[in-house]
């Protein structure tokens, strides 16, 4: 299980990379492995949208499951990773890199403090079993 130290994590298995007020969001390695082969991604937000923490930003389908991705933070969407619509399988192979989902700015700082660090998220995954 890959859980990078430098990211923040949400209970619903999204990660957030924080860089000077800008946040990049994706789903975790744990989430992609639970879904298995991902075949479809649909965005429910677009660049310029204001979103709130907990809003559904995308749905992901694998052969066996479907999942909603909710935003771990509130803010304004500055980019969505359109390439993934054609190649959603990248979420399986590179969930923390190429397969980022959206970028957000004007983020509510309070939201970030409620997220887990890598160690807590690792414990949280283990509690749920594999």
């Amino acid at each position: 299980m890959n859980i990078p130290q430098n990211l923040k994590y949400e209970k619903t298995d999204e990660w957030a990379a924080v860089d000077a007020g800008k946040v990049t969001i994706g789903i975790t390695d744990y989430a992609q492995s639970q879904l298995s082969d991902i075949v479809f991604l649909e965005y429910l937000v677009a660049t310029g949208d204001d979103i709130k923490k907990g809003d559904v930003i995308a749905t992901i389908e694998s052969v066996k499951a479907a999942a909603e991705v909710s935003s771990p933070v509130s803010g304004k969407v500055t980019a969505v990773n359109d390439d993934l619509i054609q190649t959603p399988e990248k979420i399986n192979t590179d969930p923390y890199g190429e397969a980022w989902l959206v970028k957000v700015e004007d983020v509510d700082v309070g939201d970030l403090s409620s997220l887990m660090d890598a160690a807590s998220y690792e414990n949280y995954c283990q509690e749920r079993g594999h």
Binding site: K64, A65, A66
Partner: peptide, 13 residues
């Protein structure tokens, strides 16, 4: 195929 749309996976969604 595309069974992830269906009730046995999506349930109330």
């Amino acid at each position: 195929t595309l069974t992830a749309r269906e009730q046995h996976i999506r349930r109330e969604k």
